[in-house]
Design a protein around this nucleic acid. Sequence first.
DNA 1: CACCAAATG
DNA 2: TACTCATTTGGTG
DNA 3: TCTCACACC
DNA 4: TACTGGTGTGAGA
Lengths: 521, 521
Amino acid sequence: MVHVDMDMFYAAVEMRDDPSLREKAMAVGGNSMLSTSNYIARRFGVRAGMPGFIAKKLCQDLTIIRPHFFKYKAVSKQVQKVFATYDPNFSMMSLDEGYLDFTSHMQWRRESEDSERTVPVVWRSEEMCFCEKYCPKYVYDENQGQEEIPEKNEDISSSPDLFDEDDSNEENIKASGENLPDFCENCEKRIFKTAPFDAVLFGLDINEAVKEMRFRIEQSTHLTASAGIAPNTLLSKVCSDMNKPNGQYRVLPTREDVINFIDELPIRKISGIGKVCEKMLSGMEIKYCQDLFKKRGELQLISSDISFRYYMKISLGIGSTFVSSHGERKSMSVERTFREMTDRDEMYKKCLDLCNELGGDLKRHNLVGKTITLKIKKSDFSVKTKAQTIANFTDDYELIFKTAYDLLETEIMNSKLLKLRLMGVRMSTLQESSKITSKQNDIKGFLTNMKKKVAKRSAEKPDLIKKGLKRDAEKRETINIKRRASNNLKDMFAKIKETRKVEADDEDDIIVVYEKITDKK
Amino acid sequence: MVHVDMDMFYAAVEMRDDPSLREKAMAVGGNSMLSTSNYIARRFGVRAGMPGFIAKKLCQDLTIIRPHFFKYKAVSKQVQKVFATYDPNFSMMSLDEGYLDFTSHMQWRRESEDSERTVPVVWRSEEMCFCEKYCPKYVYDENQGQEEIPEKNEDISSSPDLFDEDDSNEENIKASGENLPDFCENCEKRIFKTAPFDAVLFGLDINEAVKEMRFRIEQSTHLTASAGIAPNTLLSKVCSDMNKPNGQYRVLPTREDVINFIDELPIRKISGIGKVCEKMLSGMEIKYCQDLFKKRGELQLISSDISFRYYMKISLGIGSTFVSSHGERKSMSVERTFREMTDRDEMYKKCLDLCNELGGDLKRHNLVGKTITLKIKKSDFSVKTKAQTIANFTDDYELIFKTAYDLLETEIMNSKLLKLRLMGVRMSTLQESSKITSKQNDIKGFLTNMKKKVAKRSAEKPDLIKKGLKRDAEKRETINIKRRASNNLKDMFAKIKETRKVEADDEDDIIVVYEKITDKK
DNA sequence: CACCAAATG
DNA sequence: TACTCATTTGGTG
DNA sequence: TCTCACACC
DNA sequence: TACTGGTGTGAGA
Ligand SMILES: Nc1ncnc2c1ncn2[C@H]1C[C@H](O)[C@@H](COP(=O)(O)OP(=O)(O)OP(=O)(O)O)O1
Ligand SMILES: Nc1ncnc2c1ncn2[C@H]1C[C@H](O)[C@@H](COP(=O)(O)OP(=O)(O)OP(=O)(O)O)O1
Ligand SMILES: [Mg+2]
Ligand SMILES: [Mg+2]
Ligand SMILES: [Mg+2]
Ligand SMILES: [Mg+2]
């Protein structure tokens, strides 16, 4: 199982597209909130989820760039194209990361020709030598990496250490057939040790395969990715972070290696263990994954069944061994933060806008839904959601608003003076809109239309066959006798033990049962 | 515990108010459906819940009277007035029946004077003598029994056997101080053997007390009631039917008597065991209450926990020993049957009418609710309900209709040609309307009003104290650590056994747990 | 919570 | 010709 | 079903 | 000045 995650994704894209940013501390987002930062900024403590103005206190020279989502989506598609060549069933977890199952690729790879593992070089990191002496056939194909990015791309960008020491590829050295120096005596940059010099040959094992994939990604996007290779998703996710940026890490599929890796791993590294959970667990002396197993008694006591299983799986390094393709989407939402709002009508207007947006999104995705959730965040940052499931699937903003309005209304009326900082509307219980026949979803039209139509009562008398006085005899006979008799087999078997016991002492002592049953209403 | 139930209630009222009905087979209801019948009609098999036109086949001479609910309600209030003098906490189960706890009354009764157990005679059944010879002081007080019935009452009616042989009251004979004949030699009717002749003296025991109460009811309403006296509600309910009409029955509060009574009692007599349940149980050889206990093994196997307890209580004659005062109402509904309906708009109109009715009912009862249920019965008598819980409590018919409309719409759209015979609307999740502040429940008004108001954004900047860069440190610190740690004690104790076991073999064999946990996603 | 079947008066 | 109406409860998903 | 808190990107 | 927006999930009622 391989997990791939782009390095400082948004930031990397912005740095790629604006070379002046590359040597600066920078972050992507706004003055209020940052989505990510580059590694220079991270040294100052600037992180995703941090307000920009606070980040600037930590890092005076921080440059903040507004995000360009269309670019990230485009890059993501390029990345996915590469993913697909290694595992057509890859599963994207977000724009910048995904899981791949390399097993079938590795089978193919074992039988592959060198040429099939040779990737042409169409773009070179600035750290690599491409003096004519060592790289006579350098070609830059402008279209190759850019076909899906709908914007000018004026330059090339850096990739720090694609071929660092640990990963140095013996196959390539062999393939080169020459004993070249590591660095160019001219430009002092690293020399490609492959032959032909306009391509890189990768080896047979999975490390090589993953390096090859990452190289392809870099060739295509001019951005670097890191990867984790492990026996399951849980571990590979952690691994992809181990050698960030632009690195990879492998946990071998042996119990030895898994245990060594997991035992000392801080629980917080595991995806799903967040701040709160970490704190709770640290309160019971659990800091590393092995602690989860050591304390399994206490854990089982205080945890739900699901959580306990989850903890145990972590402590044993167990995770999914297959990529579960993302099911259908379960919800779609829009929310917005704004300056403090107290005016009711302004709120309703905002609500309407959100419903409008949401309705558009739904239509665009050919989805309809039944459950509308209104979300509000008060000025004190407290959050409330109020949901309502309506009878009919819809993507119509008027219908959505009809419901959201009611929800908002009750919120407004339940508090003296409502001070809002955010409002959101979500649609869930989704279905593809294709099948739905929502005809007339319009009350007002009906109500005015009513008076005319109702008058003309078409007193048609269709095929009313006399069935006379059946009912009790006929109908109730065929009624399903469900009540007070559970068909549930599970229940049945659960009860058998208890029952047998009761059956044993049959009917000798009424009093016992009399009191056992008692009056519990 | 005493259960009192008026005899053939609606029918008795109608017979009282129209003497010509008294010797006829009659029923109350319509050609489509009867609510009850008198005892003459019952001899022909005419029962409540039977269509009138079928009843007429069984009984050619059946007279069907339309019901007069206001009368029944008025009579019920009179009855309740009597009830209250024996148990102020009496609990009405319907217009014509209720439970009373006589314990405190019996305490009082033990110390009471004869005069306190003497009920003046203001109305006399036709079967009693009121010749001047034996009843010189007869007075008919027109107002006494009628104060709450808002309709002319032109006559007096019959009460078959209030003083039949078994119940004949020795106290009265003693109190009379004379040796009177049983019947009047003049009119041949039974003579009141009390002195003074315009009152009846009742004895000290509970049978007498209940007779007294029933006599008071008859004096007040000119209608007779039957009663059951038993150690609990379950039994007294059955008892009140044993000597119907105008009789009473007692099960003594001894285990002997209870067991004798219950053992041979057909289960169907128990309130709660209906047709279907009877059939199901008869399928496993259960016909009498004692069978429930004999077959408790099988019963536990196939029944839910609740049902099983219920059965066991029946088999042992256990019931509530106190009158639980009716909690608040849980739902309110309107439904109507009509000639087959296929026109959509007509359906919507019907729906609107029902919502209107329901809204009125709610307001009249000062109730608001959140859950609207649409009920439809198709021409094939199949029933569907569709419910929706809205965000705001309401009693407004427009708001109710807004929801009911949607529900109806989906039903209409989900079937090619909907043929309806009934529609109903129900409101549940009720609350007293006093507290609710439902101000502006009006979308249309808002929408038109919107454009003006939204423009003027009042950009007030209130007391925004700088709190700077807290959040993660301050806020999240005080978060409740609920997730993945269940506080539920039941859960905890349930798990302790299992846990201890796991704890015992501590951490010697990872594999066992490894496989025990496995991959169950 | 939504839905249905059963039960009662 | 024609098979009610109001309300609660339990079971299931 | 509704609501909340938590988690991740 | 200023603390996101989109999505999923587990628990509890
Ligand atoms: N808290 C957040 N709010 C909004 N967007 C975020 C947030 N965290 C991450 N993102 C966006 C921006 C990131 O570039 C992108 C991918 O996230 P992620 O892979 O976790 O970090 P990253 O790619 O920026 O750095 P890294 O090199 O650590 O992977 O998702
Ligand atoms: N199936 C029904 N549908 C509508 N109304 C009913 C139905 N059953 C009973 N009622 C009404 C009419 C009854 O007079 C009243 C009281 O019911 P109930 O006490 O069971 O019968 P009853 O009082 O008519 O005769 P009884 O003498 O057996 O008590 O409730
Ligand atoms: Mg990343
Ligand atoms: Mg990522
Ligand atoms: Mg009755
Ligand atoms: Mg009754």
